[in-house]
Amino acid sequence: MTETSGRAPEASTGLSPATRDRIRRSKELYPSARSAVLPALWAVQDELGYLSPEGLAEVASELNLVASEVEAVSTFYSMYFQHQPGRHLIQVCRNVSCGLRGADLLLSHLESSLGVEDGQTTPDGVFTLEGTVECLGSCGGGPMIQVDRYSYENLDFERADQLLDEIRARGSKSGGVARNA
Protein backbone atom coordinates (compact mmCIF):
# COMPACT_ATOMS: atom_id res chain seq x y z
CA MET A 1 0.00 0.00 0.00
CA THR A 2 2.96 2.34 0.45
CA GLU A 3 5.06 4.08 -2.16
CA THR A 4 8.69 3.73 -1.27
CA SER A 5 10.23 6.23 -3.64
CA GLY A 6 9.43 8.99 -6.09
CA ARG A 7 8.68 8.07 -9.67
CA ALA A 8 11.15 8.72 -12.44
CA PRO A 9 9.94 10.79 -15.39
CA GLU A 10 8.18 8.61 -17.94
CA ALA A 11 10.28 7.27 -20.76
CA SER A 12 8.71 6.73 -24.12
CA THR A 13 8.46 2.94 -24.42
CA GLY A 14 5.31 2.40 -26.37
CA LEU A 15 3.07 1.22 -23.53
CA SER A 16 -0.30 2.93 -23.55
CA PRO A 17 -1.44 5.12 -20.63
CA ALA A 18 -4.10 2.47 -19.85
CA THR A 19 -1.45 -0.25 -19.46
CA ARG A 20 0.73 2.00 -17.32
CA ASP A 21 -2.27 2.78 -15.19
CA ARG A 22 -3.03 -0.94 -14.81
CA ILE A 23 0.53 -1.57 -13.64
CA ARG A 24 0.29 1.23 -11.07
CA ARG A 25 -3.03 -0.03 -9.75
CA SER A 26 -1.58 -3.53 -9.37
CA LYS A 27 1.31 -2.11 -7.39
CA GLU A 28 -1.02 -0.40 -4.97
CA LEU A 29 -3.03 -3.56 -4.40
CA TYR A 30 -0.30 -5.53 -2.60
CA PRO A 31 1.48 -5.07 0.74
CA SER A 32 4.74 -5.34 -1.23
CA ALA A 33 5.17 -3.71 -4.66
CA ARG A 34 7.19 -6.67 -5.93
CA SER A 35 4.06 -8.83 -5.82
CA ALA A 36 2.84 -6.80 -8.77
CA VAL A 37 5.49 -8.31 -11.11
CA LEU A 38 3.24 -11.01 -12.57
CA PRO A 39 0.17 -8.77 -12.95
CA ALA A 40 2.37 -6.07 -14.52
CA LEU A 41 3.86 -8.55 -17.00
CA TRP A 42 0.33 -9.64 -17.90
CA ALA A 43 -0.59 -6.01 -18.52
CA VAL A 44 2.36 -5.63 -20.91
CA GLN A 45 1.62 -8.88 -22.73
CA ASP A 46 -2.10 -8.09 -23.01
CA GLU A 47 -1.19 -4.92 -24.86
CA LEU A 48 1.80 -6.00 -26.96
CA GLY A 49 1.17 -9.72 -27.34
CA TYR A 50 4.59 -10.46 -25.80
CA LEU A 51 7.13 -8.99 -23.38
CA SER A 52 9.25 -6.52 -25.29
CA PRO A 53 12.59 -5.43 -23.77
CA GLU A 54 11.10 -1.94 -23.39
CA GLY A 55 8.04 -3.35 -21.65
CA LEU A 56 10.23 -5.31 -19.22
CA ALA A 57 12.27 -2.18 -18.53
CA GLU A 58 9.18 -0.18 -17.81
CA VAL A 59 7.84 -2.80 -15.38
CA ALA A 60 11.20 -2.83 -13.62
CA SER A 61 11.32 0.92 -13.30
CA GLU A 62 7.73 1.14 -12.06
CA LEU A 63 8.38 -1.52 -9.39
CA ASN A 64 11.88 -0.31 -8.44
CA LEU A 65 13.54 -3.51 -9.64
CA VAL A 66 16.43 -4.22 -12.01
CA ALA A 67 15.29 -5.12 -15.54
CA SER A 68 17.34 -8.34 -15.59
CA GLU A 69 15.56 -9.47 -12.44
CA VAL A 70 12.14 -8.91 -13.97
CA GLU A 71 13.28 -10.77 -17.07
CA ALA A 72 14.55 -13.67 -14.94
CA VAL A 73 11.13 -13.93 -13.32
CA SER A 74 9.33 -13.73 -16.65
CA THR A 75 11.30 -16.57 -18.26
CA PHE A 76 10.31 -18.98 -15.48
CA TYR A 77 6.66 -18.91 -16.56
CA SER A 78 5.68 -20.64 -19.78
CA MET A 79 2.82 -18.30 -20.62
CA TYR A 80 4.95 -15.18 -21.06
CA PHE A 81 6.28 -14.78 -24.59
CA GLN A 82 9.71 -13.42 -25.47
CA HIS A 83 8.68 -13.08 -29.10
CA GLN A 84 5.50 -12.02 -30.81
CA PRO A 85 3.24 -15.08 -31.30
CA GLY A 86 0.38 -15.32 -33.78
CA ARG A 87 -2.80 -13.34 -33.19
CA HIS A 88 -4.46 -16.42 -31.68
CA LEU A 89 -2.75 -19.02 -29.51
CA ILE A 90 -4.02 -22.59 -29.93
CA GLN A 91 -3.02 -24.89 -27.09
CA VAL A 92 -3.65 -28.61 -27.48
CA CYS A 93 -3.73 -30.48 -24.17
CA ARG A 94 -1.99 -33.85 -24.52
CA ASN A 95 -1.86 -34.84 -20.89
CA VAL A 96 -3.12 -38.15 -19.58
CA SER A 97 -6.93 -37.73 -19.83
CA CYS A 98 -6.92 -35.96 -23.20
CA GLY A 99 -4.21 -38.35 -24.42
CA LEU A 100 -6.46 -41.31 -23.67
CA ARG A 101 -9.16 -39.73 -25.83
CA GLY A 102 -7.08 -39.02 -28.92
CA ALA A 103 -5.28 -35.71 -28.33
CA ASP A 104 -2.18 -36.79 -30.31
CA LEU A 105 -4.31 -37.41 -33.37
CA LEU A 106 -5.98 -34.02 -32.94
CA LEU A 107 -2.59 -32.30 -32.77
CA SER A 108 -1.39 -34.08 -35.93
CA HIS A 109 -4.60 -33.08 -37.66
CA LEU A 110 -4.20 -29.43 -36.66
CA GLU A 111 -0.57 -29.50 -37.79
CA SER A 112 -1.65 -30.62 -41.23
CA SER A 113 -4.69 -28.31 -41.48
CA LEU A 114 -2.65 -25.28 -40.46
CA GLY A 115 0.50 -26.36 -42.27
CA VAL A 116 2.71 -25.77 -39.22
CA GLU A 117 4.35 -27.92 -36.57
CA ASP A 118 3.99 -27.83 -32.81
CA GLY A 119 5.39 -24.49 -31.61
CA GLN A 120 5.16 -22.70 -34.97
CA THR A 121 3.09 -19.78 -36.24
CA THR A 122 1.15 -19.80 -39.50
CA PRO A 123 2.77 -17.64 -42.23
CA ASP A 124 -0.18 -15.20 -42.14
CA GLY A 125 0.51 -14.67 -38.41
CA VAL A 126 -3.01 -15.67 -37.37
CA PHE A 127 -2.37 -18.85 -35.34
CA THR A 128 0.41 -20.15 -33.12
CA LEU A 129 0.07 -23.87 -32.38
CA GLU A 130 1.29 -25.20 -29.02
CA GLY A 131 1.12 -28.93 -28.28
CA THR A 132 3.48 -28.92 -25.31
CA VAL A 133 1.44 -27.37 -22.53
CA GLU A 134 0.36 -28.15 -19.00
CA CYS A 135 -2.83 -30.08 -18.35
CA LEU A 136 -5.44 -27.45 -19.20
CA GLY A 137 -8.07 -28.58 -16.69
CA SER A 138 -10.62 -29.80 -19.23
CA CYS A 139 -10.02 -33.49 -18.52
CA GLY A 140 -13.74 -34.22 -18.62
CA GLY A 141 -13.99 -32.85 -22.16
CA GLY A 142 -10.99 -34.26 -23.95
CA PRO A 143 -9.78 -33.96 -26.56
CA MET A 144 -9.83 -30.21 -26.25
CA ILE A 145 -8.03 -27.09 -27.33
CA GLN A 146 -7.75 -23.74 -25.68
CA VAL A 147 -7.77 -20.81 -28.08
CA ASP A 148 -6.58 -17.64 -26.34
CA ARG A 149 -8.43 -17.78 -23.01
CA TYR A 150 -11.32 -20.04 -23.99
CA SER A 151 -11.68 -23.81 -23.91
CA TYR A 152 -13.33 -25.88 -26.63
CA GLU A 153 -14.05 -29.43 -25.54
CA ASN A 154 -15.05 -32.79 -27.03
CA LEU A 155 -13.58 -31.95 -30.41
CA ASP A 156 -13.43 -34.08 -33.49
CA PHE A 157 -11.41 -33.06 -36.55
CA GLU A 158 -14.33 -31.51 -38.37
CA ARG A 159 -15.43 -29.39 -35.43
CA ALA A 160 -11.87 -28.27 -34.76
CA ASP A 161 -11.50 -27.11 -38.38
CA GLN A 162 -14.85 -25.31 -38.27
CA LEU A 163 -13.85 -23.57 -35.08
CA LEU A 164 -10.59 -22.30 -36.56
CA ASP A 165 -12.42 -21.08 -39.67
CA GLU A 166 -14.84 -19.18 -37.45
CA ILE A 167 -12.07 -17.59 -35.44
CA ARG A 168 -10.19 -16.66 -38.60
CA ALA A 169 -13.37 -15.08 -40.01
CA ARG A 170 -14.13 -13.18 -36.82
CA GLY A 171 -10.63 -11.78 -36.77
CA SER A 172 -10.69 -10.80 -33.11
CA LYS A 173 -10.47 -12.42 -29.72
CA SER A 174 -13.56 -14.49 -29.01
CA GLY A 175 -15.75 -14.73 -25.92
CA GLY A 176 -17.31 -17.28 -23.59
CA VAL A 177 -16.18 -20.42 -21.81
CA ALA A 178 -17.38 -23.00 -24.31
CA ARG A 179 -17.96 -26.42 -22.80
CA ASN A 180 -18.77 -27.92 -26.16
CA ALA A 181 -17.43 -26.37 -29.28
Partner: peptide
Protein backbone atom coordinates in the same frame (compact mmCIF):
# COMPACT_ATOMS: atom_id res chain seq x y z
CA UNK B 1 -7.19 -10.06 -4.15
CA UNK B 2 -7.25 -12.34 -7.20
CA UNK B 3 -3.72 -13.06 -8.41
CA UNK B 4 -3.11 -14.71 -11.78
CA UNK B 5 -0.21 -17.11 -12.31
CA UNK B 6 1.46 -17.53 -15.68
CA UNK B 7 1.98 -21.21 -16.42
CA UNK B 8 3.92 -23.26 -13.87
Amino acid sequence: IVHGGAGA
